[in-house]
Design a protein around this nucleic acid. Structure first.
Lengths: 345, 345
DNA sequence: CTGAAAGCGCTAACAA
DNA sequence: TTGTTAGCGCTTTCAG
């Protein structure tokens, strides 16, 4: 701008010789404007390089066309993929996404949600850092913006959620191992709950259990290694911890291991590699959460692959419906995982 | 809210028995308010659960305390790490980050930048999808918000940039290979330029060249495999393309290869694995851009590791300085890479 | 030390 | 078919 400040609707109105409301209606197509006036306004807009001030629009209309996505941890590729899925859907509805990373920190998460609400997002999609604490509940019960949880669900209030069929995924992976002749199958994972094992992991264990039960195989407590602190520990500690869990499993007759999540699989793989345990001959391996390294490793590692983009898309679709005021009961959508068999099982 | 709408400063003023301006000044600590009035206002704020409306603040003050980070491709872990670096710095200054992914698409990038400007961000940090096209220049020359480029620099206008010492990184990696006795060293990469090789890659090649020159080794054209379309091709195609580049190199006497970026290294590694070429005995390997899979692979792969968080932090620091009006000439900061030697070299 | 009041740029009645 | 105008919730000048 020669002037220094960006042109406003007032400026456009003046150069087009119409009222501001006419400009507004041309910009938003919110009421009929004569061919001729429309032309003059559009001409003026081009001439001045006018762009509507979203902040003012937002303040005045109460809508921002903005969706906030608060992610527990963006270092996790899985969540970036979910973000893509969300973006592709809301883009079609004319909404924009703003992504915020909570770095697995509950305090940051709270701040991020508050910040987004203060900034007037029309809806929120959340991967909560913590599924049992209620710091989010407090925030959101004071607010009537629609919320959708994805991948993890914070319990105890009104919202939709889109989750993986955890039980089914674990069931299929375990069944595959059983069909390959394994009868001593270990389970290694972190969980994100503080006291109890979080729901996601409970469901995965349940799938593991069901497959055993169906095959008439017993469940042995010492085959299941679960450590708390999935959200508290930094990556390196998680790897070290899962390394140790695998070491313990190696003292049992286990001939296959199902990793309940990706930090677990990294430690497990490193342990097996260091100990020169042959995969899959001595220990077969399948893990939840697909990742690039699983294909690059030798041998390549089988995975229960989550349809991340689809989870995001489903969450976004649900949110859009609710924003558009389509009434429907709150619910939980479950998406199935893909079992990708590679060389490790 | 029982009422349905959130409380405003007016509400707070009324219950505290003061003027709105007093409330504002208490909230922002922008002028002295008596102990007593402050107390009453704070009491009212707590009682009503008041939170200042950021949108209104933004409209009125012209500042948003928001920094936009437009990333060429969030699937690249490297950029997520940069985002963390940015966040950690601007957070200390009381700013929030909003992250947007352009998915390597120039049109989306443009839209994202426009969207952020329209929403009133106080500054922008960009990883441009394209360093030679000027679609960004047009946008930004019409705007006086400070901009900092990180990792990649769009040429031709006033802005700071924070880049890697590409030449130095390539030089050190090449020198390491030469010291290990290699005299036939290949170079494989993508570049992001349309016609010419983009600057980043030119610099890396220059480092490769310098190391050769210094050792009195000749540069052979057929040892350098570079393909255009780094930003255009999807991942799978890039891997296939670099796979082919490595196949071609295998017809030369090359005994070591430096990968100029991570998509190249994936194809190279897969090719070597498929052909059962022993690393590092038959072909040694170093790649730019550290990634988890490099440590999980057998053998683990050496890397020129970019200090991603530091790049982000430096960019953010620079931006903050400029936003605070500290005058300084535009410039380019170069950060050094770490050479991490693993089993592949 | 505090209050009144003018607007930031836009939307949406209401009026013509 | 279009214009006038009252705010959205806040900041900040000016007056007291």
């Amino acid at each position: 701008m020669a002037n220094g400040r960006s042109p406003t609707m007032k400026d456009v109105a003046k150069t087009a010789g119409v009222a501001v409301s006419t400009v507004s209606h041309v910009v938003n197509r919110s009421r009929f404007v004569s061919e001729e006036a429309t032309e003059r306004v559009e001409q003026a807009i081009r001439q001045l390089g006018f762009r509507a001030n979203r902040v003012a629009q937002n303040l005045r209309s109460g809508r921002s066309n903005l969706i906030g996505f608060v992610v527990s941890n963006l270092y996790n590729y899985f969540y970036v993929r979910i973000a893509r899925g969300i973006e592709s859907v809301i883009g079609k509805y004319g909404y924009h996404l703003t992504l915020i990373d909570s770095q697995e920190r509950t305090d940051l998460e709270q701040e991020n949600i508050e910040s987004l609400i203060d900034r007037g997002v029309d809806g929120l999609i959340l991967v909560p850092t913590c599924t049992t604490c209620d710091h989010i509940g407090k925030l959101l019960s004071a607010d009537d913006r629609p919320i959708v949880f994805v991948d993890r669900e914070a319990i105890g209030f009104q919202a939709d959620s889109v989750l993986l069929s955890n039980e089914e995924g674990a069931y299929r992976a375990t069944k595959h191992l059983i069909e390959k002749g394994h009868v001593d199958i270990g389970f290694v994972a972190f969980h994100f709950g503080h006291d109890e094992i979080d729901m996601t992991m409970q469901e995965r264990i349940e799938g593991y259990r069901k497959a055993h039960q169906e095959a008439g195989l017993p469940i042995r407590k010492n085959y299941i290694e679960i450590t708390a602190g999935g959200s508290v520990l930094v990556n390196e500690l998680r790897h070290a911890e899962s390394y140790r869990m695998m070491e313990r499993l190696l003292t049992t007759p286990v001939s296959a291991v199902l990793c309940g999540n990706s930090p677990a699989s990294i430690g497990v793989f490193m342990c097996l590699k260091d100990r020169k345990v042959k995969i899959p001959e001595e220990i077969a391996m399948i893990t939840f959460d697909d990742d690039l390294w699983l294909t690059m490793a030798t041998p390549s590692i089988s995975a229960v692959a989550q349809p991340a983009e689809l989870l995001g898309a489903a969450a976004a679709e649900r949110l859009m419906q609710r924003i558009q005021g389509k009434p429907q009961p709150y619910g939980c959508i479950r998406l199935k995982a893909d079992l990708i068999i590679r060389d490790s099982s």
